[in-house]
Write a protein that binds this DNA or RNA. Structure first.
Lengths: 338, 338
DNA sequence: CTGTTAGCGCGTTCAT
DNA sequence: ATGAACGCGCTAACAG
């Protein structure tokens, strides 16, 4: 059965197409009785307006694009959840694209999105991206774009982030207070502020505690998981005195756990690990574990809210709308001894 | 700067719109030289065809819809990953919708998707959905639909599932072999085959081991997390002899962990827990934990592949294309004692 | 209050 | 090998 359109409704009702259209859109200039007739038939025939015809005409897609590095990760999953929630509240649809940390893939997606497929875009940047020039096209085309979590430190960008240096400080201090002397830092990317600001906090905490900052203990991660395993293994073997690990992202923490198990280094007895992450799961299971938990769901919601504000106003996104949320140091201790 | 369209390109090149269109689509009847000129300018001006105009004309959206119960869950995250991968390989876009287990929300999404916004749909059904009638509209409209993981046992449906009863059996047997005598089963929904078939395996394993099947130990879960916490707490308090829990989905396992901690019941000393899930994270951290791991990524890919096969052939999805993948019982034991 | 007309940008006849 | 013309389904401006 072919899907019904305005023409069909108009014919069956002996009305003009525009009248039917207006009736369905609750135009004030249509007789209530006509409206009722039209709506009744529309419902009967399961009429759904063709969104593409409508988008073409209105130059609005009712769609936002969401560009993420990955999704098999609790943080971004929660972010999607928050974003979808707000989109739905605005009667918008969400297109999801994954970069898998690849710069070229990210650039290709952005290029495509310049077509007008989406009215606005939310991005968490791939760790591999060397710069932000590939996003310029969106600005030129006047497509509102809001960055969240994975951003670069640029004034001209609208972003939603967390208090990364503060919480990096707290995380490191937590390890120090727990007795760690040689703390490694696992950096996710040297172009994203997320890792750099956390590192700042790490260095500050070491200094304040009178501990030496050893560049050898700072590891720059890789987009590829296997590669990270190798790098971390090397690090731990070269520096057997490492008694603490601060991972800037969940995936690096995961790798650390694997390597520690492989090397027979017990957690948390031999090595204490703390990570930025949203490992609700992990925290529940391993009560001794501490994480720095970002308000992922809230970040998604806030980023989406800012985006919709500028979509509805038909204005470019104002950098002044940038906001910083707070992460939480979550220490899980159950009644049972570890 | 306004985005460029065919008209603009045609004007600047002194060609007709149709020639430009054909050149960009590599039509055989366009002079190679003209093609080159057109493409050069298109590239220069960052021309991107308006997808909605194109969709309207071609009656193809280059988009698939993905309907999920939730996403803050490792299984569905991995599934998205696999699906996006295949979609991208087919030059398709992915719209994501979350039902949060709500039937009405699911019905509304399906109703909307009957508009033609997507050329095909992938669904994992909400636990709350009492039946499948709301999907009939898609069939009527000829929109290919493939169900995965959360499906109902209906012959007429195309689906990708795992060997649920077999692995339910294995999971239960694992607990029995570990010494459990009173094993609770946490059922996610009594309408979805996923939970029922796993329960079948559970009952079979009990019988084969000569253990009594006690209906009191089977708990029907709730969409709401807090509600589950209460239900599980009641269950454990009423039956303090429970020494094993088999959760049919990850979320119920999470709730169990929380309740056990709250009640001071140690895992795995007092209560052993096994769950269908993809808690890669959890498994890593809690070496003693066993999970039944579904090939989530693969399921996503297979479901998407089947969908695209029928999209490209312009045929309805054949139920015969249904496939069953295998889950794996993953026992994690590290070198360290728990 | 309702109908007529004119595009939105693209792909596809049909003509030359 | 290229151009002119039409229509996908919808909304909006302009009648009346």
């Amino acid at each position: 059965m072919k899907s019904t359109n305005l023409k069909r409704l108009a014919q069956e009702l002996n009305l003009s197409i525009s009248t039917v259209s207006r009736a369905l859109n609750d135009s004030y200039e249509i007789a209530p009785e006509t409206k009722a007739r039209v709506k009744a038939l529309a419902q009967l025939l399961n009429y759904e307006p063709n969104p593409y015809a409508s988008s073409l005409r209105k130059q609005k897609s009712q769609t936002i694009g969401l560009i993420l590095p990955e999704v098999a990760n609790n943080f971004f999953s929660l972010a999607i959840d928050g974003i979808e929630e707000i989109a739905r509240a605005n009667d918008y649809h969400v297109l999801v694209y994954l970069t898998h940390e690849s710069h070229s893939r990210e650039a290709a997606i952005v290029q495509h999105l310049a077509s007008g497929r989406a009215d606005g875009i939310l991005v968490s940047v791939a760790s591999e991206s060397p710069d932000f020039t590939h996003f310029d096209l969106l600005t030129e085309r006047g497509i509102p774009t809001v960055f969240f979590d994975r951003v670069r430190d640029e004034e001209t960008i609208t972003k939603v982030t967390t208090d990364d240096s503060t919480s990096g400080y707290k995380a490191t201090k937590h390890l120090i207070d727990a007795g760690c002397q040689r703390i490694a830092y696992l950096l996710v990317s040297d172009t994203l502020s997320i890792g750099l600001r956390r590192q700042q906090g790490y260095e500050d905490a070491l200094r304040d505690a009178g501990l030496a900052y050893d560049p050898e203990l700072v590891l720059l991660g890789h987009p590829d998981r296997e590669e990270n395993i190798i790098l971390i293994r090397e690090l731990l073997q070269k520096h057997p005195d490492i008694d603490g690990i601060f991972a800037s992202v969940e995936s690096l923490a995961m790798c650390s756990y694997e390597v520690c198990q492989e090397l027979g280094r017990r957690i948390p007895e031999d090595v204490k690990v703390i990570s930025f992450s949203n490992m609700a799961v992990a925290s529940l299971l391993s009560p001794a574990l501490t994480t720095i938990t970002q308000p992922a769901y809230e970040m998604g919601r806030e980023a989406a809210r800012i985006l919709f504000r500028s979509i509805s106003k038909n204005k470019p996104v104002l950098p002044s709308q940038s906001m910083e949320l707070q992460s939480q140091l979550v220490v899980r201790r159950s009644t049972q001894a570890s």
